[in-house]
Write a protein that binds this DNA or RNA. Structure first.
Lengths: 252, 252
DNA sequence: TCACATTTGTCCGTATGTATC
DNA sequence: AGATACATACGGACAAATGTG
């Protein structure tokens, strides 16, 4: 096999015997990190990759599988298909945290407390960093939620988008990731819930008040509103879980 | 397969056809979530799984690859080897956050700010929930760090353990997960650094002061100490990154 | 120490489904 | 509508690693 890649043989990881598909995976990852491969770029087809790396096609497949799950590429079938560099890492993190929550059997209270702290921190930074464009975007999201509610579509996606947009306004991608992950969990809870337009109207109203406080740069006011809002949502989730546990339907 | 089901032909909906290995992957995940498969349990060998799911061995392999990367199983070669249910999801989250950072989606400053907020929140809860046993454990970690430093072993693992133990003391598993992930990133940075016993002595001293404040239940004092500590570490990380980027050695 | 069985790791050949032109 | 290019999947085979007797 091709052993000549002295620059990759650095002190890290003498632990396990590196498997071929792992080597290929990190090789491609390295190219992405370096900027040689950018989002939108297409990777050669599997057969071509196999030829270039001097391995079997199956080995390439497993490497691509890893890259796909890790959020570096997507794979499309058919003509003009194949592996494409695409950044979906944030989704990956959300899913992992999501899985971890199930595995560790984290309680709703723990989740709510963490969400409270993270979103409050996010809000603090958002108040300072938010731009007029961000404010417009948030207003648009709220308007969309209203419209959807009017025509009978439950606006829970819009309501989740509100929190995500808020995180973006903090101009800190770490908050974006964390809020994204938490919102994935929230979305899962909401999807188990009967659509309740009464509550969703209330949520929209609360979001509107938070936005209003933000426009006036009133952190303390927005903070208090957000806290009430999240605690309220947390209580509803607790009810859902209690209900699901009773029915022994917590997991599919 | 049944292709004629006009009533289910929803517009734009059926984007993805679930691939065989995805089906197998989620099937096994389901069993883990349900509690049928618990950590330590061994899965049948690949050939056996292929037989049972009525698919080829390669398909099973790709499913196992996904489960492995997602942190649900580990795989060992040889006799008495094979896939074992094991919970390494926290590592997975760390790795994903890793990747996100390396893609420069997240800057050191963003990371430090997030770490600051999360650990401060964690500390707030730890002060209220911490037990004498937790305090003893933290003291033990510090003592161990001192001992290691004395005999010439760099105590960065002990120093990281201090923060993890602090998170555990908050009695909120969500904080444990988040701090765990953040600390994995910190550990990676530290591993790239020349061991500096001068700095590590300083770190141990700062940890000791934080613990002292905790023993006296002085949140404000501990909070200020923690903030200085994290900001200081963040500054050092920034220096490392700047240095590595100059040398074009930022990756591997 | 040595052989053996088990299981993963890797490769090849081939067939099928699917999307694009 | 047919040809093409690609991923998806199957089955067989051998190599390498690892634990056991």
């Amino acid at each position: 096999m091709n052993e000549h890649s002295p620059m990759f043989r650095l002190p890290l990881a003498p632990l396990k015997t590196e498997r071929a598909f792992e080597r290929i995976c990190s090789e491609i990852k390295r190219l992405i990190f370096k900027g040689v491969l950018k989002p939108g770029d297409r990777l050669p087809p599997e057969t071509e990759l196999a030829r270039r790396f001097n391995v079997g096609r199956q080995t390439v497949r497993e490497a691509l599988r890893l890259l796909e799950l890790a959020g570096f590429i997507t794979i499309q079938k058919g003509c003009a298909g194949g592996p494409v560099i695409e950044d979906t890492i944030l989704n990956t993190i959300s899913n992992s945290i999501f899985d971890a929550i199930y595995m560790k059997k984290i309680t709703v209270e723990e989740l709510t407390v963490a969400r409270l702290e993270i979103e409050k921190a996010m809000l603090k930074h958002a108040v300072e960093e938010i731009t007029p464009e961000d404010l417009q975007g948030l207003q648009k999201t709220i308007n969309q939620a209203k419209e959807h509610a009017e025509i009978g579509i439950h606006p829970f996606k819009d309501n989740i988008e509100f929190h995500k947009s808020l995180a973006k306004a903090s101009k800190n991608k770490m908050f974006v990731i964390l809020v994204d992950a938490l919102m994935a969990v929230v979305a899962d809870f909401l999807s188990r819930l009967q659509p309740d337009f009464e509550i969703s109207r209330k949520v929209i109203y609360e979001h509107e008040r938070i936005l209003d406080a933000l426009k006036r740069r009133k952190l303390e006011e927005a903070d208090a509103l957000l806290e009430d809002h999240i605690l309220e949502v947390g209580r509803r989730f607790q009810d859902i879980v209690t209900e699901l546990m009773k029915k022994d339907m917590y997991f599919y």
